Amino acid sequence: MSQSSKPPKPPTPPSPSPAPVPTSADVARLAGVSRATVSYVLNNAEAVRISEPTRRKVREAAEELGYVPHAAARSLRAGHTRIVLLPTSHVPIGPLYSTFLNELQWALRGLDYTVVQYGSLGLTGDEAARAWAELRPVAVLSLGEIALSAHNVATLKRAGARAVLTMGPQAVPGAHALLMDQAEVGARAAEHLVERGRRRIGVVVPEEEGLGLFSTPRLEGARSVAGAEIVALRMAYSEESAAELAQRWGSLGLDAAFAYNDEYAMLLMRAFQDVGLRVPEDVAVMGADDLLIGRLLRPRLSTVQIEMPTGERLAALVDEAVREPAAAVRRHDLMAAVAVPRDST
């Protein structure tokens, strides 16, 4: 064999064909039932009575085959999706609201909805409405970070949203309003401090972007209290910022601090102690949200307890709005606030 001749390359083995996608008919054959029964079981249809052994056979067959119902086909049959779109918060709203939102998502899942979180950072109301509408959600639950208009609500409804619900201090025409009056939190805090003989109150306003949705109404609520002289003070959620504020506290002539929430209050209280200010003798400190850790501090932290609705209640409101899209939009007051006096005031 000459040096120029080369043995032929072995043929490239063919790529394995992808496994066929299992269908409901495959599940029906394996389980020994009809396709309709498969659909009823896997779509959790409650109107049809199917025995538990049959349900178990269908689920086991679906798991064995790796079958998953097609969401788009299901949506075509029903005329709408089961997606509840929840625009993702991009601000640190605190443990109280995070727990509430987690409960809400679990409750919606229990009602057979799919919760889709959507990152909406930087979008205007018009941009957000169009982006959300592309997913064809059956409901949108806006937390209020993006200011929606009646036109935005109409855009979502034209795209198939049976309900639009907004959480926040103000109602939006065409949407169910889940009102959360943050001004009441500030008012209850200032009233308590005035009752304790404190008049010159520094209200800590977070420097973090996006928290104005909560902090601005709380500041205005404190300003509404007769006898309170309110000074707004900017502070970041950091030890350094709290220390800087504590260092200049003596020059401000203030005798009390109402912080945005318990976490900011704890940072500031520790900073006061580090510079030799006594709590509450030299300065009274009050937070909001009534976190457990505030009760473990010494002195124990006075706070404003916020009574939030349960996730189950709000999920039920979403479900009711979806099932009755023609019903008149309603306003629901979701929040109450009460001062909880402890040692720090």
Rank of each mutant, 00 (worst) to 15 (best):
L268T: 09
L245K: 04
P20C: 05
L121H: 07
A316N: 15
T155Y: 06
Y113H: 14
M235W: 04
P22R: 00
R199S: 06
H90R: 10
I83A: 04
M269E: 12
G122V: 06
A161Y: 02
G160R: 12
G168N: 04
E244D: 14
P11Y: 07
L301D: 09
R313L: 15
E208A: 03
V231Q: 13
S120A: 14
V33S: 03
R59N: 01
G110Q: 12
A159Q: 07
E209F: 00
A328S: 14
T114D: 14
P14A: 12
A61T: 01
N43P: 15
A175H: 00
Y264M: 06
P22V: 01
L104R: 11
S120L: 11
L193I: 12
A183E: 09
V205W: 00
R188I: 01
Q117H: 10
G168L: 06
E307H: 14
Q247L: 15
V84I: 03
G122S: 08
H332F: 13
L296R: 13
R56P: 00
V84H: 05
R158Y: 07
P217L: 05
L317W: 15
E263D: 14
A328N: 12
A228F: 06
L233E: 08
S251W: 05
G253I: 07
Y260W: 09
S142W: 04
T12C: 00
A316Q: 15
A183G: 09
V84P: 01
E324V: 10
A257M: 13
R218Q: 07
E244C: 08
A236N: 05
L252E: 12
Y260R: 02
S251Y: 08
S39C: 13
S4T: 12
G287L: 08
L219N: 01
A154P: 05
Q3K: 07
A315S: 12
E208R: 03
A222H: 00
P87G: 05
E240S: 12
E263V: 08
A139R: 08
A36G: 12
A228K: 05
R158V: 10
L141I: 11
P137V: 00
L76G: 05
P92M: 01
R199G: 04
R298Y: 13
T37F: 03
Q170R: 08
D290P: 04
A271R: 12
A36M: 13
E307T: 13
A257C: 14
D319M: 14
A129S: 10
Y237P: 07
M269P: 06
S120M: 11
P299L: 08
T37Q: 06
L292D: 11
A150W: 03
M167K: 04
L254K: 09
E134W: 07
F214N: 02
G79R: 05
E52T: 02
N102K: 11
A190W: 06
K6A: 11
A72C: 03
M308Y: 12
H332R: 08
W132S: 04
D290Q: 06
A242C: 09
R35M: 13
S89F: 00
M286R: 03
T303K: 02
A256V: 04
A336K: 05
L123P: 03
A328E: 15
P169T: 05
V304P: 02
D319L: 14
M286Q: 04
F258D: 03
T155L: 11
D26P: 01
H80V: 15
R331L: 10
G144M: 04
Y260P: 01
L108F: 13
S89M: 02
G122Y: 04
I306W: 08
T345A: 11
